[in-house]
Nucleic acid binder design. Structure first.
Lengths: 190, 190
DNA sequence: TGTACATCAGTGAACGCGCGTTCACTGATGTAC
DNA sequence: TGTACATCAGTGAACGCGCGTTCACTGATGTAC
């Protein structure tokens, strides 16, 4: 029935990206292959090379999507709730609900480092992570502390390295754990 | 000149482990191959299978070594300095000076989960990470907060994801960053 | 001290496989006039 | 409205490669008597 599929797919680039994210979520970025991605998308195995140049190009495109999505989530959390803590919760939520993006994003050796879109996407995400206080120069060590904590928590959780007694709700755990962070007063203000 | 090498190596298991750690430190656990390891050790490519059963067995042996080494470092830091902070510094130091161990240790999907030695090595390391206060039941959330912070910091640092303005001394950065952690009073006592 | 035998440690050829990339190609669509 | 041509999007065969694992083997060492 699907054999009336036209020669031109129409949206193949996006379809390939979705398939790749699926594969990575299941088996990790290391296990990604161009062949598997095209197989899932139901196209010839050379199609991915046409769209992304090579494997690194595909992974770079995924990283760009990931940074943009994370940026959007963090910015929304900051805007809506103006709370330092809730930005951290949003970070952990993103990491756990988009493991494929998270996996690829923080392994720069998989990326085309020179890629302009990637650099810009990373830059604006970092701005939200550091510049929590709307332009006011934030204490960098405090920002790194907060980022490290949520990043480490998300990573340890995702890999199943945390004790079971913490329960099953990562957002609740994030709030409990992040309570041990001493943040600059200005950041918790409403 | 090395061709008077005897048929029996004498210490091949340890040599293979060292070679594997070398490869992983250079290219990551994903890039490890049994062939490359034996090539570096200068033996036939089937030798590694003889010693470890299969690739997963080799990676599991590396994880065991890693957990034991980390446990030793953390226990020493705790014993010598009795400071919560310095255990964290030791953790980061270990992660950055043994990237191969660190990489393999926290990717459980690479391990033989049922391996008895691995379970025991993980268990005793976790005990030091949580039970900082010599047997006194510690606040779990506080322990996870500290662990997450140093784990995240080490990970982000190792992958080059932290801003350059932090400088080049990871131990100093750890102390500055960990200062934002609110730890239970008992733990910082001398 | 000698000898037979078992076990251990490592070899090297062979297997089948999936991979990334290239290349000449073809089918479909867009554009100029 | 028609036609010629350029460009775009995707195909499928072919390449060479490194991999993990198996297997029958051999060389060296240990053990029993």
């Amino acid at each position: 029935m699907a054999d009336d599929r036209p020669y031109h797919h129409g949206d193949l680039r996006a379809t390939l990206l979705r398939a790749a994210v699926e594969v990575i979520a299941e088996s990790g970025a290391a296990a990604l292959s161009m062949r598997e991605v095209t197989r899932r998308a139901g196209v010839s195995h050379a199609a991915a090379t046409y769209h992304f140049g090579d494997k690194r190009g595909l992974l770079t495109a995924i990283a760009v999507d990931g940074y943009r999505a994370l940026h959007a989530e963090l910015a929304a959390a900051e805007r809506e709730r103006r709370s330092f803590l809730e930005v951290g919760v949003a970070y952990v939520r993103f990491a756990l609900s988009h493991p494929a993006y998270f996996d690829v994003m923080f392994q720069p050796h998989l990326h085309e480092v020179a890629d302009v879109e990637l650099r810009e996407a990373k830059r604006s995400t970092a701005a939200v992570l550091y510049g929590i206080d709307d332009g006011a120069p934030t204490n960098v060590a405090a920002g790194v502390a907060a980022w490290s904590l949520v990043h480490g928590l998300a990573t340890l959780w995702a890999n199943g390295n945390l004790p079971a007694q913490l329960g099953e709700d990562p957002e609740a755990v994030t709030r409990a754990v992040a309570a041990h962070l001493r943040v600059p007063r200005a950041s918790t203000r409403t």
